[in-house]
Design a protein around this nucleic acid. Structure first.
Lengths: 255, 255
DNA sequence: CGCCCGCGTCCCGCTGACCGGTACGGTGAT
DNA sequence: ATCACCGTACCGGTCAGCGGGACGCGGGCG
């Protein structure tokens, strides 16, 4: 539904459709559930899933199928996010150690942000984000800052499509969002105040390429009580800038 | 070559063969290189790779193909390693903060350990390990401790197959290895002294399931000069035990 | 300059891998 | 007992996938 759902007339299409039927918080799905989600014929799902198992992309358990470790391994080899992750880790680390709040690294993929890393301590603010998970761009600090530093066309595209409401504070007015993007572009940081989940606030700063486009973004997240986003602007910005220059030295980019 | 290389008479088999042709340090591979590695007919690789691109598992760049972000996303949803990662992060975090040395989380996959996470600061000991990468079990602390807490049969299997030499210190004598495994089983920790890469030492402790089998392992790595593995035994062990009990409370296991 | 080699792309007719409707056995709720 | 829903297995028709081969391009070499 997000993407023009893959071509179902090809084996490969069916295969990835099955794989993508799993969401972040599914552990194991029985055959019947896969049939329901993909609406492919049962026999077909059975066969393809079997093939996926022999190819070590799925695991078979008594309760159903599960995305396998082989898939994890493969995914970790995706060059862009892997090298980004490796380069970023020390910076995220620093940030966490200074603030002891949850730190995120995310990239934009369509109208969503995909979290590449999330680090936090034992008593971290429990946020709905998960590594590998998605959130709409318009309701997160990372998303907004990524959008602010994106091509005007994608920015326009998001602004002109309906903005889903996640909490009472979610920004659903395109005009307001547009103004926030403008100030984010100006200041090099974006904020979020309980727009994606109640009780949470964030600051985010962009990792920039040579051309002033965002490749990724870093954020710090904390609970409304003790946490004041403004207090950490300098730190996120510094980390993001440090990482930016490191990344642009290691050319291997594009995306 | 590690696994009985996938079935090449099926589309899916060819597809994963192509995907697995990428190693951790490949960024982008041109068509010709893929042909060489997979030895599939050129036309076939061309077509299948094209399909993989439309299914967002590969990216097309002017210089060749690249594992795409979609694949990363998928991999992060693999339940076992993902939830392991989420639960483990705070512990790894702690460990890093206390020691400021590189910290690893790894699982066993066949005769290799696969690194699920690696966290370190700016001036971390540069080790050959990478998140999503592999290393032979017999030459790393994580590998040895994982093996020590595995079924006797897999242990025997590793011991009876040739042990690749990585450095002058790599243990290649099955007898010696077996003895080390025994003491590891006894002490709940394993060591490595320049066995995988010159200049590096490690301590590792296992994450155990109810049945005293290792699900994963944690390690601390440092350079020969300043770093004494023995000094951190208590810390790794404590972290591993904390994580163990957390994991076994959250039943979702098996693998 | 002409040559050649290696690259990516495209074409096209053959065939076996893929397809999915259908049927069967097991299991738990009603 | 009945039923609903599950996972599994079978099997013949056909079309997606196959891959040998040809083509155009660039760039290194003699």
């Amino acid at each position: 539904m997000p993407q023009p759902s893959a071509d179902l007339d090809t084996v490969l299409g069916k295969a990835v459709t099955i794989l993508r039927a799993f969401t972040v918080d599914d552990q194991v799905l029985p055959l019947a559930e896969l049939v329901r989600r993909t609406d492919l014929p049962k026999a077909t799902v059975h066969r393809v899933a079997g093939d996926l198992v022999t190819n070590r992309l799925l695991d078979r358990t008594p309760l159903g199928y599960r995305l396998s470790g082989g898939l994890f391994e493969l995914g970790m080899r995706a060059s862009v996010e892997r090298s980004l992750l490796e380069l970023a880790m020390p910076f995220l680390q620093d940030l966490y150690e200074r603030t002891h709040e949850t730190v995120h690294l995310g990239v934009r993929e369509g109208h969503d942000v995909v979290y590449v890393a999330k680090i936090g301590g034992h008593r971290q603010a429990k946020s709905p984000s998960r590594p590998g998970g998605r959130m709409p761009v318009h309701c997160t600090a990372i998303g907004k800052v990524l959008l602010a530093f994106s091509d005007p066309e994608v920015q326009q595209e998001v602004l002109s499509s309906p903005l889903e409401r996640r909490t009472p504070h979610t920004i659903v007015a395109p005009g307001l969002l547009e103004r926030q993007l403008a100030t984010a572009l100006e200041n090099g940081v974006a904020f979020e105040r309980e727009e994606s989940a109640p009780g949470l606030q964030c600051v985010a700063a962009p990792i920039l390429t040579d051309g002033d486009r965002a490749l990724a973004a870093i954020s710090i997240t904390g609970p409304v009580g003790r946490f004041r986003p403004e207090a950490h602007v300098t730190q996120v910005r510094a980390a993001a800038q440090g990482l930016s220059s490191l990344v642009s030295r290691r050319r291997s980019l594009s995306r």
